[in-house]
């Protein structure tokens, strides 16, 4: 069993090529970013609905996540989890904090303060935040994998 300097260099180059292939494969079309943003927006909107509707929205969200994962696997033959290790966590964690903050604010506005317009504003912020957050995530992912 031997490995020369050149073989080690070739092995690392092959690894980089495979990672770059993955970065190219996993590039999302605009509808995929929008689908993620719609799910997050629906979550932030959910306190506006009556109790039964809220459960229905949460169930729809769950189904939506399953459909997106299934679609990614079918289209790409691979699934990249948004919460994966790496530099993309620098994007996903702040985005998660923003969505949780907007959801809490929306819940308080709709259920405690009875000011539903605040929930609507929160939802209006959530969609672009998640859409562009998803695009930034992808840029960071591509850069991390050498593209």
């Amino acid at each position: 069993m031997s490995m020369t300097y050149e073989e080690a260099r070739a092995a690392l180059a092959a690894k980089t090529l495979a990672e770059q292939d993955l970065a190219r494969i996993a590039t999302c079309p605009p509808w995929r970013h929008a689908a993620f943003a719609v799910l997050e927006t629906a979550l932030v909107c959910s306190p506006l609905a009556p109790v039964g509707g809220r459960y229905a929205i949460l169930a729809a969200l769950f189904v939506g996540i399953i459909l997106i994962v299934r679609s990614d696997r079918r289209r790409l033959g691979v699934f990249v989890n948004g919460y994966r290790r790496g530099r993309t966590r620098m994007v996903v964690m702040p985005l998660l904090m923003v969505v949780i903050g907007l959801y809490v604010l929306s819940s308080l506005a709709a259920l405690e303060w009875h000011m539903p317009w605040i929930s609507v504003v929160c939802a209006a912020i959530t969609f672009p935040a998640c859409y562009f957050g998803s695009m930034i995530w992808q840029q960071v992912f591509r850069r991390e994998l050498g593209l």
């Binding site: 495979a18 990672e19 993955l22 790409l76 691979v78 990249v80 989890n81 994966r84 994998l145």
Partner: peptide, 28 residues
């Protein structure tokens, strides 16, 4: 992992939750 294809498979999987056989075959 001395075989480059094995290194490529493991490297790809380190960034993905899972990958299908055909995809791994294409990449390697």
């Amino acid at each position: 992992l001395q075989a480059p294809a094995r290194l490529q498979i493991v490297a790809l999987l380190s960034h993905a939750q899972d990958a299908e056989f055909q995809r791994l075959k294409d990449v390697t």
